[in-house]
């Protein structure tokens, strides 16, 4: 779950913030809202949904270099709509924002791009699939074979992604609930890409292999008022199973959710309360304390693991800052994954 666009929305405050629902299927500003039972269709839904307020194409990869070292990369394209329509030219209400990061055990590189919709500087097409902003690009003949590129002054990466299994729909056939109040989004993933390619670090290029996880999510609804932040995990275990889990921290207690994905790609939703997470160690990062070591338990699947950041200083110093970086998993299951944390102020 990546509700981080809450911050994006705060960064670009909207005149009439969605205050409840004005009617079935749309909110006060005319944005569409997700509905249970709506069937996702592909490749159409790989493309943008301008009538929804927020949307993202979110890739993370855990990688191992030819030098034996662990790396992580992040590539994210956000769409944020000021109004529920699209239009050609500068007058388009669709805004685009992207983050790219490259994490090593010692360093964490971050870059950000912003673009206006309507002029071709950024956008997404579903078929053939292409998501781009400036020269950052995730594209391929279809959603299963993608090239992923980003570069900045300090780092660059150029990776090839090949899907190893089916798409996974989270929640109820892609309808993913985010709070006790019923806020929801459409959410699906491709959790299993095989990756090969090259990272370019200040010290030079490194050939890497690994696995990538691609999330797709769109919605128009912010979090509940009492929800202050979240901890989100995408983990891949050595036995081929995968876990997506998140905890939304709120005044009325935590809200947890997740998806258990078997090696063959078949998925089981994990409703609120099934997953238990507990911070173990705090690290001082960018002037605040963040939990960079966790215990995560899913008794239903006999899972109890410790999760530790590869680089505790994986701080995304972007227009809306947050923590995001690769993690190592040990315990009942060993593996790797990505962790994201927001709202620790």
């Amino acid at each position: 779950m990546r509700v981080r666009l809450l911050l994006f929305l705060l960064l670009l405050p909207l005149s009439a913030y969605a205050q409840g629902f004005a009617g079935l299927g749309s909110d006060a500003d005319g944005f569409a809202v997700p509905e249970r039972g709506h069937a996702l269709a592909f490749p159409r839904d790989h493309g943008p949904h301008p009538s929804y307020r927020i949307e993202w194409w979110y890739a993370t990869a855990t990688l191992t270099g030819a030098d034996g070292q662990d790396y992580g990369i992040q590539w994210t394209l956000f769409r944020s709509a000021l109004a529920p329509y699209d239009k050609a030219g500068w007058q388009s209400p669709q805004l685009w924002l992207a983050h790219a990061a490259l994490t090593t055990p010692e360093r964490h590189f971050v870059a950000e791009r912003l673009a206006r919709g309507g002029i071709g500087q950024a956008g997404v097409t579903a078929d053939p699939f292409e998501a781009w902003i400036d020269d950052w690009r995730m594209a391929g003949p279809d959603f299963d074979r993608l090239d992923l590129r980003a570069r900045s002054a300090e780092f660059a990466y150029d990776l090839s992604l090949a899907a190893q299994g089916p798409l996974v729909l989270h929640g109820d056939r892609g309808y993913s609930v985010k709070s006790q109040d019923g806020q929801a989004s459409y959410y699906y993933s491709q959790p299993n890409f095989a990756v090969t390619g090259t990272l370019t670090l200040p010290s030079g290029p490194v050939a890497v292999t690994g696995t990538a996880w691609l999330d797709r999510e769109w919605s128009s609804q912010p979090l509940s008022e009492d929800q202050t932040g979240w901890d989100w995990f995408s983990l891949g275990f050595d036995d081929g199973t995968r876990l997506m889990a998140f905890r939304l921290r709120g005044g009325r207690g935590d809200f947890t959710s997740g998806t258990w994905i078997k090696a063959d790609g078949s998925a089981t939703p994990l409703p609120d309360g099934m997953i238990a997470v507990e911070p173990l160690d705090m690290t001082r990062v960018a002037g605040r304390d963040l939990p960079t070591r966790w215990r995560l338990a899913l008794p239903d699947k006999a899972l109890s693991v410790e999760i530790e950041a590869l680089n505790p200083q994986a701080w995304m110093a972007t227009s809306f800052p947050y923590w995001e970086g690769p993690v190592r998993v040990t315990g009942s299951h060993d593996g790797k994954g990505y962790l994201e944390m927001t709202g620790y102020d």
Partner: peptide, 11 residues
């Protein structure tokens, strides 16, 4: 005055 992007960027 709190400029909303909606006001600044849209017609």
């Amino acid at each position: 005055d709190g400029i909303a992007p909606t006001d600044a960027l849209l017609a």
